[in-house]
Design a protein around this nucleic acid. Sequence first.
DNA 1: ATTTATCTATTTGTGTGACAAATAGACTTT
DNA 2: AAAGTCTATTTGTCACACAAATAGATAAAT
Lengths: 245, 245
Amino acid sequence: MAIDYQPLQAQSLAKQIADQLREAILDGRLKVDERLPTEEELASRFDVSRPTIREALKRLAAQNLVRSRRGPAGGTFIKHPSADELKAALSNAATLMVTLGEFDLAAVTEARRAMEKLCLGLAVKRRTEEDIARMQAQLERQQEPITDEAFCASDVAFHRALVDASANPVLQFNMVTVIEALQPLMNMIANRTRERQVIVDHHRELLQALEARDLARGEAALDALLDYLGGQFRTAQERNGEAHR
Amino acid sequence: MAIDYQPLQAQSLAKQIADQLREAILDGRLKVDERLPTEEELASRFDVSRPTIREALKRLAAQNLVRSRRGPAGGTFIKHPSADELKAALSNAATLMVTLGEFDLAAVTEARRAMEKLCLGLAVKRRTEEDIARMQAQLERQQEPITDEAFCASDVAFHRALVDASANPVLQFNMVTVIEALQPLMNMIANRTRERQVIVDHHRELLQALEARDLARGEAALDALLDYLGGQFRTAQERNGEAHR
DNA sequence: ATTTATCTATTTGTGTGACAAATAGACTTT
DNA sequence: AAAGTCTATTTGTCACACAAATAGATAAAT
């Protein structure tokens, strides 16, 4: 007797309504910039109260699917999704997954190494002078006496600039899970001046390789950098493990 | 005089509260499975009404950051993020970005080709018999007389199984933006029997290569398949473009 | 003594009604 | 014609009430 007991939980009305509207948006039955009926009318259509409708709309708003405006020409509109907003949301979620250990650090670094090489391969062909300048600016910043957090932020910005030089928005997007999501972990690593220099040297080598459009040299620099970073992460984790005892 | 006019719009209270709580969760000030105060208490703490608090909590619930239970031991709890839920959310968002043209189809296919090769590279080393069996099952299904939608779903499942064989959760995760997100577009392509056979042949070749752990052969099959698919997408887009005139 | 049923308190879910705040458009005034 | 004012509409917020679920305590039955 193996009945798979259905949850059959009467989900909250607001959730059901939100799901229904979300599906309509995804299916294209509700188009971008289209205006939904007023909350009052939605309430009567779904035969629920206005607060329930509001909760449903707030859920959608939290997912950047709709936006609301007050006033006569106001209302709730289907929102055109923006890559930047989605990137920010993904960064938050991925950061959480990493810091909570849901994503194994080894898996993240493995994926990063592979994907960042992909980006490098495209960047070598497509990088512009602006890309180089952006990376150069971060490199210089990393040699100034800045706080650990500013150094890490600049590190992230440097790699982000490299990824952006690939000129592929989908890769740029996906890379947040292996670049930005690691920032909190990196912040836990205290970078002494001597250690910073190692990173800066690798960055400089990587930048020069990109400028010279030398893929092999760039990959070597990236490998060296990620080998070093991987070691740093491991020792940081061990230190953390000891601290927990 | 270049004042950067601050938005200074008083954002909705619910949004501010939601943002504040989200930051606390991301910072680790609120830990997983921790219980938030009751809605009533939160309301008095933030000095707002309970509906406002509820809206804030619903926003967080929509992002899978908290979950609520009724009853004496109930309340609102910080939720441990699940890769599957996040994957589903990302799939929705990415699908929308693709269907609305926010992600260029050329960029998606370029990213897919590169990333799927990465997965293949790992899968060749790590694939298990279960991986092979799963892909084999989909391959057989694709040769049965099923609907176009079922064929597309099986196509996605086949590639998903390949990606999963890489045994890297981060890559598996990111691949939804280039595999699952394309399903609606693939559904728009009517697959005649003759055309299905082309895809099935490529799949079989790919599967055999994976079984033999032959990376070069697998990459060739993948390239051929994606070349074919790219062509299909282009003609579909052109047909669509004509239909819009 | 263990299980089962019932009660109770607590907390979220939902409903109702009201008013505040923003704002597009019509209207009035200069 | 331009600027200011008014007005209607819609979302934002609040207050209060009750329903529904549920963990734990209590009582009852086997």
